[in-house]
Design a protein around this nucleic acid. Sequence first.
RNA 1: GCCGUCGUGGCGGAAUUGGUAGACGCGCUGGAUUCAAAAUCCAGUUUCUUCGGAAGUGUGGGUUCGAUUCCCACCGACGGUACCA
Length: 968
Amino acid sequence: MKFDVNAIDKKWQQYWKDHKTYRTTNDKDKPKFYVLDMFPYPSGAGLHVGHPLGYIASDIITRSKRQQGFNVLHPMGFDAFGLPAEQYAIDTGVHPSESTAKNTKRYKEQMESLALSFDWDRAVNTSDPNYYKWTQWIITQVFDSWYDNKADKARPISDLIAHLSSHGTRDLAAAETEPLDISAEAYNAMSAREQSEVLMNYRLAYRGDSSVNWCEALGTVLANDEVKDGRSERGNHPVVQRAMTQWKLRITAYSERLLAGLDTVDFSDGLKAQQRNWIGRSTGAQAFFDIEGHDKQLEVFTTRPDTIFGTTFMVVAPEHDLVPELTTPEQQKEIDDYLAYVGSRSEVDRQAETKVTGAFTGSYCINPFTKKRVPIYISEYVLKDYGTGAIMAVPSDDDRDERFAKKFGIEIIDVIDKSDYPGATNKDKVGKMINSDFLNGLEVADAIKVATEKLVEMGIGQGQVNYRIRDLLFSRQRYWGEPWPIIYDADDVPHAVAPADLPVELPPMDDFRAVAGESPLERATDWKITPAGRRETDTMPATAGSNWYYLRYMDPNNDGEFVAKDVVDYWQDVDLYVGGAEHAVSHLLYSRLTHKFLYDMGKVPTREPYKKLLNQGMIGAPIVSIHLGIMLSEDGQRHPVWIGSGVAENSPLEIEGFGKGHLVLDEAALTRKVPLRMVEETSVDNEMMYRIYKEQIDELASDDAQDAAYFRTVLGQADTFVWETDKNGKQYLELSYQMGKMSKSKHNVINPDDICARYGTDCFRMYEMFLGPIDQAKPWSVSGIDGVYRFLRRFWNLFTSDSDALKVSDAEPAKEEMKVLHTLIKKVSEDIEKLSFNTCVSAFMVATNDLGKMKCNKRAVLEPMTRLIAPFAPHIADELYHALGGEGSVHLAPFPEVEEKWLVKDSFTYPIAFNGKTRLTLDFPAGASKEDIEAAAKENPDVQKQLEGKTIRKVIVVPKRMVNFVVG
RNA sequence: GCCGUCGUGGCGGAAUUGGUAGACGCGCUGGAUUCAAAAUCCAGUUUCUUCGGAAGUGUGGGUUCGAUUCCCACCGACGGUACCA
């Protein structure tokens, strides 16, 4: 029996594969537990050490639940559609289906070598037609549905058609793009095309005009969450606003339920807050202002109807529909100039500077409360897409309105006396109303109510709730996604493709470059034209496939349904979902939406897809840089040189072959990143340092690794090195470093394969868990992994003799030994439940150290330990379990249960504190009463010494905790 | 600006309901073993100290017999978000 980690890894990985140890059946007799990892997009770079953090954590939960008798669903799959694969294809000419297949294979191999206990027979791939058939089926269901606000659920479109043809829009409370007023007669008299347009106003998947994020470089529109700071999240290309007709999902119909559902799930507060912010619910009032000399009114949304008396001007968005009508001839030029200015500014410009700009239209509104004329301006600071695209401006109580008023010389009327609330800002919504006629003297909260009632009474407004969230843009003009399963007939009326005709497969294409905002599928003419009409050529975004994948794992090979009813009734929902926080809004919000829709359709039994969510923290790595300087030699020559990070400008230098001189650092003294592998991590005077040694560089000549080639290129950029010498006489350069995200371009990616090959998979798994709390960001550092390796070796040594032979005794274990075992079982069981894996590893170390000191080799202690450590170190556990004569795999053996009788203590060690400061400890029997302890403590000579010359004012005794003397 | 998370030795981090701050590991120091090295093992390692002790969990206050933990104010780091009416 040898502690050969690589051989043990290989042996057991093969065993588990051969025996299908992790196969999960839909066995309804056992209690279920569903542990899900966010499935990855399989990129060409493979996994780095940051990825497995979550995978290992969920695997530990999975294995322990399995050992506890649960039927555990723990699947993995691939989010294979999407922009990156397609961009890669365009860059390299490799078809996305090919690169995806290759990367998927690599990911699977890496995951297998990490001993992640997935049931690979249930794997899904979103780009597989057998999978996206059901993605398309779901979207046809969404297309053929509308949202009934009265029933507060989605209903079939046929119900809506029946309603429209018998009652028109009367008594219809539906989620809609815009309010319609159509009689039954009018509806029935419409052409098929016109009726279809009416239905589009209500469908949950609909085609509509709007201003969208257009990315020229990617040739497609993007959803709001795919745009960051006016640039595309993928590729960092500029994004502009453009009016286009696009497919959308009516997520706004579900705003309220998406908010309410957050209270029922176990997600972190931060994540819930992010979703709430994204939905952005705000309560206020709708109000209509008369426009002087016009029939039309200007509609605004305000959260502060109490401040209408302070409204001294109006502002509408530059893109607002009424702008042309409002603009008077005298103001035409000014408005045109301003619109031209706005048009010239990109999203990035607009966000970068928040100058006060605007222009007067020449028109006026009438303030409904004061009856005064208030001028109407246009300005960038009012957004077309929020509220009604128009505001009533109250310069006294809104900072932006105030800045605008000051710039344009508009009157400011104070309407709120905040003197009772020192330090209150406008956002606090507090104070007493002044200069406001019937509102005077009211507190703001009351005034809001009264003012809203007044608006209703006057018939010019009402209370209203507004949301920031927009309908979800669900079209992409790209190739690598699910085609929208829609066919337009001869009248251009869209129809969902019948279930029997799904999937609508992607046509094979070689050139799928997007051209001028047109989907590449437009060019697949044979595919596009069908007997029933022309196909929709837009594809769906990557979220389409990932929105519902957790359901497909339950029943991955079902040809007749996306998931069978009895199966989903058994598995229900995800008990624990593990993944990165970067999906806080997009993926999690959209899959919650899909789930709620399926719930309305009666297809899933639960209201929320994910019960509990765990976000693993990012693992950072040092980005190490080498410094370039110039040596100005005495003869005036300039030589670029590599120097240590600590060498200051003007330091005298002397280099063989270059002569004497001094160091110059200028703009060109760039720092170059170096691959981590070439770098030595050391600690000098307790300071963490990174060094590169001369002897390592000398070795590079014989190394043909990619890193080395890069490094040689870097090193070629200077004439020589200015070496420093350490105490052993070795020459080195000191490097500077900072912590950062792992990325290929920073040369700080650490591949788990390398670590596993060197230390074994079990060591890697335990080390990742040992790094710290799972949900916190932390730096990767190789130092420390040796400690975990040593621990595993010591753990192994408990079972073996010096000559590596199994040496386990059947003798009765001592009480102390059983206490160590059960303390460990208790700690590990509790901490797994708390998702506190780092403390589990510590507990294993403590127990191993203790048993090592006791020289314990009793089977009754060691055998349960193999079952206990199995979720963490699956290979070594199975090896030792079998060595002890275990049958089957340790991973199907019962998880040890704590026996409290071994944990009962006869006595407790009490800290004895004086005025709260602990000075000594004393042992008292476990059953001792407060009085006994106090009396015994007072008699103790050490205590008396502490009490000398002092008066005891009070003695606090907490049994089984501590004793505190309050003295004076 | 707003929302959220987090501040503990040289480093990663631990500390149950408010009850011995620094578990465990790394690193470092000294020692054993060795021809030597690696590996392994043992001891020490918060800071200051007049060697009696004293201080100490970002800063300043508060509650308490007792605060890393609870409350208030502030400072800093990270993540998200932003003319959102």
